[in-house]
Design a protein around this nucleic acid. Sequence first.
DNA 1: ACTTTTCTTAAAAAATCTTAAAAAGATTCA
DNA 2: TGAATCTTTTTAAGATTTTTTAAGAAAAGT
Lengths: 222, 222
Amino acid sequence: MRILYIEDEKLLAEAVIHLLNKSDIMVDWVSDGETGLELALKSNYDCIVLDIMLPKLSGIDILKTIRDRRIKTPVIMLSALGEVDDKVRGLEQGADDYLGKPFKAAELIARINALCRRPPLQATKIYTFGDLTFDANNRTLNGQALTSKEADLMEILIKNPNQVHKKSALLAYIWGNEAITEDNYVEVYISYLRKKLRELKSSVQIKSLRGLGYKLIEKQNV
Amino acid sequence: MRILYIEDEKLLAEAVIHLLNKSDIMVDWVSDGETGLELALKSNYDCIVLDIMLPKLSGIDILKTIRDRRIKTPVIMLSALGEVDDKVRGLEQGADDYLGKPFKAAELIARINALCRRPPLQATKIYTFGDLTFDANNRTLNGQALTSKEADLMEILIKNPNQVHKKSALLAYIWGNEAITEDNYVEVYISYLRKKLRELKSSVQIKSLRGLGYKLIEKQNV
DNA sequence: ACTTTTCTTAAAAAATCTTAAAAAGATTCA
DNA sequence: TGAATCTTTTTAAGATTTTTTAAGAAAAGT
């Protein structure tokens, strides 16, 4: 999602942009009305967040112009609390929502999401191999819950089954290459996973290759 | 829509009422401050239009009293043009809008409509999952009132049940990650919600995924 | 047979979760 | 205004689960 944010207070803008980015909202920020209007007319945003007090061209004027041009992008107006006339004029002019300053970023995010009707999306990360289904979001293996480290390990193995994963690579990936020399971490968790595979009576197993590493295979294969 | 109109100039009032009625706005008119205040406190209007110069009790006093009583009905103040002090005082006291006399009825109608227009966010937001019904407008869960933080949390969970919500995400969403590092807030409120779910004897429960977050599930599921 | 590597497990340590309850802050009502 | 009540924030003491550690058993290679 991409929004246009027209705001002249630099510090506020930076803070807000940072938080919006964290919520997967890309922000184009401009600090004066003229540039803002130009972008609003030219580009295709999912939403426009518009401060009312702006240099060169007021938020109300921008709103009026884009609505005159039949651009229906949702607009959220911002203004200092108490500037009642602005609020009224904004809504009359076709703003979709209004937020008084100061506001919580969380509320702005909620309103942007509400206006854009974007269901908070989460990529489904589900992998299968043989009779195994690993759900990386829920950290379950055929429904059975895994701990985080177990899940980390299973995710690597099942993403590339039938392929050897070096112990050092697994270690680096899961424990972060903090100069840990303890291969035993990996061995312990491989052991835990094997136990769970046995419990599930899976046809899949973890094969170890001495001196090399591990790979996920189906029992009949070698 | 029904409004209260407090105005001592009979001729003006009659003209205005006539025009408002034409726009489907029902008007209760009183001509003195005391009666006006009484009605404002007792009845439930969509909006109050309040002249400042009134016999017995001034508009400002009325406004102050009803705001002290936490009545949030939108108020539009009227006063002779140029009485800037009145305007300022009115807005300070919590008026939502201000109109100088003489005014055009059309403008008053526009402002009444603007103030009473429900922001698009408040469209009925009712979510259900299992035997739960959460009303995000009233912030009730199966009729039981939730506090605002509880409601924030429940709203996220029930919007996407059976899906893991990371603790950091919940924190960011509800507390607006303002440098708060206390994950414990989320834990505390999860605990409150669980207690209420128990009280409701709901078949829905909040499952925690250690190190990940929480999700709403039906008891039989895993 | 001997060395090295890997496997398994128990239990210690650390991290995380759950609750209760105190403290602080708001709101309501007389 | 001030007492009473409700809500939110903070703190903290267990529970519970996960991770780490460590040591002996098993397997593989030479």
